[in-house]
Design a protein around this nucleic acid. Structure first.
Length: 470
DNA sequence: TTGCAGTGTCATACC
DNA sequence: AGGGTATGACACTGC
């Protein structure tokens, strides 16, 4: 009897079909609820498995029918049940299906769906397409036309304005630069006079902070600073102090003892508004004051706008008379950088600033690349979402098609089942109740009609055995 | 004025 | 150990 249940059970197969493929009405609801791709995939796999098993079963049933046609000479239906004291091993009904299974049912009616999932777009190709060459540095450009000379803004700011600016600018760097100015050989008296006698230095302050004309003013006899617009522009905005590359690459530049020039370079730091390091209120008030000043003399602002394009590092470097381009400082190899530091006999402050400039420059490029990578990652994820949505729609269509096919096959199976039972008769010629019996096909080709309660009891025993073995 | 995107910088972790 | 890189967080700026 156990062997019997290792064979194909038509009814169980149908129930399994019901489990894996609900009725069309339920199917619709399920489709709405299932939104995850895995679920749909799994469901489709189940459907395909069901189709395979169903098709296999139908093939078996068909072949058994043929065997029956060949072997069985029985024309009558002989139904024997265990209730009549027969051998339990033969408690099933021995049936000749010569007539009943002549009912035409081709296994080929079952359409085995092939799942050709849409192939995802080649991620690697897409990735390559997305790849962009990350610029390793973004050098600013200087408009040569803006390098105007000779704009003296003396008198543009009042003494009160300057004091206001000084009062608001408590930037540590600026204070440090003040001390540096003294360290670097500025006359303390001159430096202090800049605060005490703003009127006498206003023009100088403004020249240095908002205009490249300071180069021309202080470059008389100077080697390190070039007033040549072409030279400056050819180096880009990264030119610190207008150092000419023709003279020496990474070379040290001797500075003249021009006190006006050095003072100008230092004082530029005081006028430069480092709002970044200020409290918002301080920055706002200082900025506002400066904007008011600029509004009063728009022409001067225009003519002296070049210097404001310098980055803070470039201004710092210029203030400390570091004769190298920021781009050079950043991009040169570390060995060249260290050699440059040694050969140029720079002060500790200059070395420190150079290292900071290099570190910040490197980090700036790294941040740019990092943001581009992040942007690309976001774009890739968005593309993945689109692809998955497309795949989801395709799977939904496939799922619906599988469901329709399974419904059709279930209908055919039911028809076949009913047809078989409609032709079955017991030994008394009465119709066999399909609610009490099931059709069972054994692996050896025999077809049995067995009572349902036997199937259930045997199934329980089998399950218990399996559990014990586990 | 507010919101947002872009950018520079710093701190930190990692290589 | 020092330098470079990656990245989150923050502040600033311009639109």
């Amino acid at each position: 009897m156990n062997e019997l249940f290792n064979d194909v059970d038509l009814k169980a197969c149908q129930e399994a079909l019901d489990d894996c493929c609900p009725h069309p009405g339920d199917d619709q609801l399920e489709l709405q609820e299932k939104e995850e791709e895995e679920d749909i995939n799994q469901s489709n796999c189940n459907h395909v498995d069901s189709l395979l098993s169903l098709e296999g079963y139908l093939q078996l049933l068909s072949s058994q029918t043929e065997n029956m046609l060949e072997v069985s000479l029985l024309e009558d239906i002989q139904v024997t049940t265990s209730s009549r004291g027969r051998d339990p091993s033969s408690s099933h009904h021995n049936i000749s299906l010569t007539q009943t299974l002549c009912h035409c049912f081709s296994p080929h009616d079952a359409t085995l769906l092939r799942t050709d999932y849409p192939t995802q777009s080649n991620a690697e190709t897409r990735h390559l397409q997305r790849q962009e060459a990350f610029p390793q540095s973004s050098s600013n450009t200087t408009n040569p036309e803006s390098l105007l000379h000779g704009s003296n803004l003396t008198g543009l700011f009042s003494a009160a304005d300057i004091r206001n600016l000084m009062a608001h600018d408590d930037n540590f760097d600026e204070i440090k630069l003040m001390s540096l100015a003294l360290e670097e050989g500025f006359d303390p008296i001159e430096v202090s006079q800049l605060f005490e006698e703003p009127d006498s230095n206003l023009g100088l302050l403004l020249n240095s902070s908002h205009s490249t004309t300071s180069y021309s003013v202080c470059s008389e006899g100077a080697v390190g600073y070039s007033s040549d617009d072409k030279s400056v522009s050819s180096h880009g905005l990264g030119a610190v102090g207008g150092h000419s590359q023709e003279h020496s690459k990474y070379g040290h530049v001797e500075y003249p003892g021009d006190s006006e020039c050095t003072r100008e370079a230092t004082l530029e730091q005081f006028l430069h508004n480092h709002t970044y390091n200020q409290l918002p209120s301080q920055a706002a008030s200082t900025l506002e004051h400066q904007q008011q000043m600029w509004m009063e003399k728009p022409n001067e602002r225009c003519h002296n706008s070049t210097d404001t394009n310098l980055s803070s590092d470039e201004r710092h470097a210029k203030a400390l008379r570091i004769p190298f381009l920021v781009d050079e400082i950043v991009s040169m190899p570390v060995d060249s950088f260290n050699t440059m530091l040694v050969k140029n006999h720079l002060t500790d402050t200059q070395v420190s600033l150079l290292r900071d400039i290099r570190r910040r420059g490197k980090n700036k490029v790294a941040a740019q690349n990092c943001r581009k990578r992040k942007l690309n990652a976001i774009l890739n994820l968005e593309e993945d979402v689109c692809n998955l949505q497309t795949q989801k729609e395709s799977l939904k269509k496939e799922h619906a098609q599988c469901s329709r096919s399974i419904s059709q096959m279930k209908q055919k199976l039911n028809n076949l089942y009913r047809d078989i039972f409609s032709r079955l008769r017991d030994d008394q010629g009465r119709p066999v109740n399909p609610c009490q019996y099931v059709i069972h096909c054994s692996s050896d080709g025999r077809v049995f009609i067995i009572p349902k309660h036997l199937v259930k009891s045997e199934q329980k025993q089998d399950n218990e055995k399996e559990q014990r073995q586990k």
